[in-house]
Design a protein around this nucleic acid. Structure first.
Length: 294
DNA sequence: AACCGCAACAACCGCAAAGGG
DNA sequence: TCCCTTTGCGGTTGTTGCGGT
């Protein structure tokens, strides 16, 4: 783990929001050199950030395959139920949500789902992580039933829309019930979705810059899951990271309008790198297993 | 138009675990 | 085995945009 070869000159690191230029630098660097010693990335990429910040930026925003935008009903169900079962183990929860980061899940929970759960529970405080932990290790099924009235909304054939096989396997460790949300919660979540209609369910606006990339990156071969890396929509994103990307409009800032996101979505299916499919390509993507699957 | 409150999200901070020398 | 460094995770804070008054 330690990377003693990494020089680390003491410097005043930049903080705050990332500029498009910084994003581009980091993206370029990772594409060319792959993931390695984060502490060395800033210097080598010409960024005045610390490695920690670079890592976070890559994981939460720049890396390919990320979904952006509202959570689907199924994703909400997964978050609610896994939170009830695991507590605030956001990285573990995120593992079940391809394309979602632990940070995104955490934010979504804190800003929305937690309140919904509280309301559904009659205003009582959500369980503390400790409570979750102890309950999940001893009586997970009880934990589920206590947190909300459960009923099945998914069938065993994997009708979840995440199209990730892993999702079909989500179940309580000790129980036989499928993960699901209570009807009130589901309705509330649906209402929330309706309110957020303007936010399209899109994938990362991770798009190449003005130039075409011809990448021959040094992705750790041991981490390039050959089983998952199966470009099926024209994109070449195998363990060689070879191929060139189409020329796209300049990178949009992450807070662009839904229309801009929609444009990106359209691009994905029109001969450019299929970002949509990448969510499946990197099925296990989460902040906790980048190095394993990338 | 200005102010305020709120929601959403990006990013930082601190801690613990992991790994190499 | 210890020390140091890096990485990963979760909590928290900061920023921005939007709607209401």
């Amino acid at each position: 783990m330690g990377c003693r070869s990494c020089e680390k000159p003491k410097m005043n690191y930049r903080k705050g929001l990332w500029s498009p230029e910084e994003d581009q630098r980091l993206r370029d660097y990772i594409l060319k050199h792959g993931l390695g010693c984060w502490s060395a990335v800033p210097a080598k990429a010409g960024l005045q950030r610390n490695g920690k910040s670079c890592r976070l930026r890559w994981i939460n925003y720049l890396r390919p395959g990320l979904k952006r935008g509202m959570f689907s009903q199924e994703e909400e169900d997964v978050v609610i139920n896994l939170q009830a079962k695991l507590g605030n183990k956001w990285s573990q929860i995120a593992m079940h949500l391809p394309g979602r980061t632990d940070n995104e899940v955490k934010n979504y929970w804190n800003s929305y789902l937690k309140k919904r759960v509280m309301q559904a529970q009659g205003g009582s405080n959500p369980k503390s992580p400790a409570e979750h932990t102890s309950m999940s290790t001893t009586e997970p099924a009880m934990s589920m039933s206590m947190s909300m009235s459960m009923h099945h909304v998914k069938n065993s054939s994997g009708s979840t829309t995440t199209s990730h096989d892993q999702d079909a396997n989500i179940s309580s460790n000790g129980g036989s019930h499928a993960l699901s949300a209570s009807a009130p919660l589901a309705q509330q979540a649906f209402d929330h979705q309706a309110q957020q209609q303007s936010k399209n369910f899109v994938f990362s606006d991770w798009v190449p810059g003005p130039e075409s990339y011809s990448v021959s990156a040094h992705w750790p071969t041991s981490t390039a899951s050959s089983g998952n890396v199966t470009p099926s929509h024209g994109g070449a994103f195998g363990d060689q990271m070879s191929g060139s990307y189409g020329v796209l409009p300049p990178h949009q800032d992450h807070q662009t309008s839904a229309a801009a996101h929609g444009a990106a979505t359209g691009i994905a299916g029109s001969g450019y790198f299929d970002l949509l499919n990448m969510g499946d390509m990197y099925g296990g993507f989460s902040s906790t297993n980048d190095d394993l699957l990338f």
